[in-house]
Nucleic acid binder design. Structure first.
Length: 346
DNA sequence: TATCCGTGGGG
DNA sequence: TCCCCAAGGAT
C-alpha cells in the first residue's frame, strides 16, 4: 500500500457533512452536535447490536432501558428476568455477560472505564465494542470496525483478499482513516453509510458522499466486494422435545448455563446429536408434529410430543400457565409451543 | 486459528 | 425456497 494513496483518502469531511444531514434517528443515539451519549446506553445498545439488526434491537433496547434505566438497576436485576427479557434476541451468552459486566461496573462505582483497554477487560466487550464505546460515549479517536466498516473499507481500497482473512488488513486501513475530530460521529457515520448506502448487495454509489475516493467504485466492482471465503455446509440434526402438561401447568426446564441456548427456558428435549434421552416423566406421549429451526452452524428438526403427566416429572419443573409467558422462550421453543397450542397452524 | 453461538429480513 | 448476513465475543 502506497503512502500517498492512504493519505489521499480524506473522507472524514464529506462523510461527516453527510452524517449531519442523514444520521438515522435511533433510540440509543444522540443526534450529531448534541453532546455525548450515556456510556450505559451505548454499551447496552452495542452489545444488543452484535450480529443483530437494528430493527430487531430497537424494542429490546427500549424495554431494557425502561425496566433498568441505570446500570445499577440492571446489576440488581434477577438473572431469570434478564434472560426472559433477552429471549428471542439470540446469542444468549450476551445476556449472561451483560449481567456480569453490569455487576462488575456497578461494584466499581457505576462508571464504565474510559479507556479501550479498561473496557476490553470486561465480559462481553471485545475489540469492536470497546472501540465503539470509547468513540461514541467518550469521543476518543478509536477505530471502530464492524461488518459495515469492513465492507466500506474493502471497497474504498478495492481489497481483493477474501474475508475473514482480510480482517487485519481492513482494520489497518480503517485505522489510517480515523480522524482526530468528532471520532464518535465519524464511527457512526461509517456504520450508517454501510447500512444505508454502501450496502452488501446493491450499493447506491450515486448517493455516496465519498464515492470520489472509492477505488472499487472507479473500477466498477463495488458490488463484488468484499470477497468472502466459501462457507462450510450446514449439517442436519434432529431430536425430540416433550411438552408435558399436568392439569393447568406445563413442564419447563432451564438449559445448562453454557453452550447452545445456554441459560434459557426450554421444554425438555433429547440432545440433538443423536443422544437417546428418556422422556421427562410418565405420560401417554403422542406426536403433534415437528418444528424446523436453523442455527448458525446446523439445521434442526425437532419432533414434538405432548402428554398429560401421570406421575411426578423426572426433570424440569411444572409451571402454572398463569405464570407462563411465551415471550420468555427462545425462538426455537416458541415454535414448539405454538405447534402444541395449534397444530393446524403452519 | 477455527469453531461455537440465534434470529429475522431481504433478494 | 434458499442463501446471505447483521453495530462480534469467547474459547
Amino acid at each position: 500500500m502506497r503512502d500517498d494513496k492512504v493519505i489521499g483518502k480524506t473522507i472524514s469531511a464529506p462523510l461527516l457533512a453527510w452524517y449531519d444531514r442523514h444520521a438515522r434517528d435511533l433510540p440509543w443515539r444522540v443526534p450529531p452536535g448534541r453532546g455525548r451519549a450515556d456510556p450505559y446506553r451505548v454499551w447496552l445498545s452495542e452489545v444488543m447490536l452484535q450480529q443483530t439488526t437494528v430493527a430487531a434491537v430497537k424494542n429490546y433496547f427500549i424495554r431494557f432501558t425502561s425496566l433498568w434505566p441505570r446500570i445499577e438497576d440492571l446489576a440488581a436485576a434477577d438473572d431469570a428476568q434478564v434472560m426472559a427479557e433477552w429471549a428471542g434476541l439470540g446469542y444468549y451468552a450476551r445476556a449472561r455477560n451483560l449481567l456480569a459486566c453490569a455487576r462488575t461496573v456497578a461494584a466499581n462505582g457505576g462508571q464504565f472505564p474510559d479507556t479501550r483497554a479498561g473496557l476490553l477487560a470486561l465480559p462481553g466487550i471485545g475489540p469492536y465494542t470497546a472501540a465503539a464505546i470509547s468513540a461514541i460515549a467518550h469521543d476518543a479517536p478509536e477505530t471502530v470496525v464492524d461488518g459495515n466498516v469492513e465492507r466500506v473499507v474493502a471497497r474504498l481500497f478495492a481489497v481483493q483478499t477474501p474475508l475473514p482473512a482480510a480482517k487485519p488488513e481492513l482494520v489497518a486501513l480503517a485505522d489510517t482513516l480515523t480522524p482526530p475530530a468528532r471520532p464518535g460521529d465519524y464511527a457512526q457515520a461509517m456504520m450508517d453509510l454501510g447500512a444505508t448506502i454502501c450496502t452488501p448487495r446493491k450499493p447506491v454509489c450515486a448517493l455516496c458522499p465519498i464515492s470520489k475516493c472509492c477505488d472499487a467504485f472507479h473500477q466498477g466492482i463495488a458490488a463484488d466486494l468484499p470477497r468472502r471465503a466459501p462457507k462450510p455446509a450446514k449439517p442436519e440434526r434432529s431430536g425430540i422435545a416433550w411438552l408435558g402438561r399436568s392439569g393447568d401447568a406445563v413442564l419447563l426446564e432451564q438449559r445448562p448455563a453454557k453452550g447452545l441456548l445456554g441459560g434459557t427456558l426450554a421444554f425438555p428435549s433429547t440432545g440433538w446429536d443423536g443422544q437417546d434421552l428418556p422422556a421427562p416423566g410418565p405420560a401417554d406421549w403422542h406426536r403433534v408434529g415437528e418444528v424446523r429451526h436453523v442455527f448458525t452452524h446446523f439445521s434442526l428438526t425437532l419432533t414434538v410430543l405432548t402428554g398429560e403427566l401421570t406421575g411426578p416429572p423426572l426433570r424440569g419443573r411444572l409451571v402454572p400457565l398463569r405464570q407462563f409467558d411465551r415471550s420468555a422462550l427462545p425462538g426455537l421453543m416458541r415454535k414448539v409451543w405454538d405447534l402444541a397450542i395449534d397444530p393446524a397452524k403452519p
